[in-house]
Amino acid sequence: SIKEIEKEEIIKVLKEVNFNKKLASEILGIPLRTLYKRLKEYGI
């Protein structure tokens, strides 16, 4: 599903940037606030 793909992509990017959420949100092209929402939604 799209949610699974998105979750995997978020985890992959977070690992690449050593869990720097600000940098991860910039790489993913989403606002930091949205990233936090996704992390909560996906239980990351």
Rank of each mutant, 00 (worst) to 15 (best):
S1Y: 03
S1W: 06
I2S: 13
I2M: 13
I2N: 15
I2V: 13
I2E: 14
I2K: 08
K3S: 12
K3R: 13
K3C: 07
E4H: 10
E4C: 11
I5S: 13
I5A: 15
I5K: 14
E6K: 09
E6M: 11
E6H: 10
K7E: 05
K7S: 05
K7W: 09
E8T: 10
E8P: 04
E8A: 15
E8K: 11
E8F: 13
E9N: 15
E9S: 12
I10H: 02
I10G: 00
I10W: 03
I11T: 06
I11P: 01
K12D: 04
K12R: 15
K12N: 09
V13R: 03
V13S: 02
V13K: 03
V13T: 08
L14P: 00
L14D: 00
L14F: 04
L14G: 00
L14R: 00
K15M: 12
K15S: 09
K15H: 11
K15L: 12
K15T: 12
K15E: 08
E16H: 12
E16G: 11
V17D: 00
N18D: 09
N18S: 10
N18P: 02
F19L: 04
F19E: 03
F19G: 13
N20P: 01
N20G: 02
N20V: 05
N20D: 12
K21I: 15
K21G: 07
K22F: 10
K22E: 07
K22V: 12
L23F: 06
L23P: 01
L23Q: 09
L23G: 03
L23S: 06
A24F: 01
S25G: 05
S25Q: 02
S25Y: 02
E26A: 13
I27N: 03
I27L: 12
I27H: 05
I27D: 01
I27W: 06
L28Y: 01
L28H: 01
L28K: 00
L28M: 06
L28F: 03
G29P: 01
I30H: 01
I30S: 01
I30F: 04
P31I: 03
P31D: 14
P31R: 07
P31L: 05
L32I: 10
L32D: 01
L32P: 04
L32G: 02
L32V: 07
L32T: 04
R33Q: 12
R33I: 10
R33N: 11
T34H: 07
T34N: 06
T34R: 06
L35T: 00
L35M: 04
L35S: 00
L35Y: 01
L35C: 01
Y36V: 15
Y36T: 10
Y36G: 04
K37D: 14
K37N: 09
K37Q: 15
K37L: 14
R38Y: 15
R38I: 15
R38Q: 09
R38P: 01
R38M: 15
L39P: 00
L39R: 01
L39T: 02
L39G: 01
K40M: 12
E41C: 06
E41W: 06
E41T: 05
E41S: 06
Y42E: 04
I44C: 06
I44Q: 05
